[in-house]
C-alpha cells in the first residue's frame, strides 16, 4: 500500500483528522544522505538524555 499525497484523506473519515505525511517527507525517511545527517542529530539528542539521566 503505497502512500500518495492526499490519497488517504477522505473528509469525515476517522483518519482525515490527522496529519498525513507528504510524499517528500516519506521519501526523506529513507534518503541515505539525509538519514546519515539525522543519525548524527538523533545520537546527539539521545546522548544528552543519557547524560541527564545517569
Amino acid at each position: 500500500m503505497t502512500h500518495q499525497d492526499g490519497e488517504q484523506i477522505t473528509p469525515y473519515e476517522p483518519s482525515s483528522g490527522t496529519a498525513i505525511p507528504t510524499n517528500h517527507t516519506v521519501r526523506m525517511r529513507t534518503n541515505f544522505f539525509y538519514q546519515v545527517f539525522r543519525f548524527i542529530v538523533i545520537n546527539i539528542k539521545m546522548i544528552i538524555i543519557i547524560w541527564r539521566s545517569h
Partner: peptide, 14 residues
C-alpha cells in the same frame, strides 16, 4: 527541549 521523536531509516540503524 529534551522530548522529541521522528521516523526514519536512521532510527533503524540505531
Amino acid at each position: 527541549n529534551y522530548t522529541f521523536g521522528e521516523v526514519g531509516l536512521a532510527g533503524h540503524w540505531i
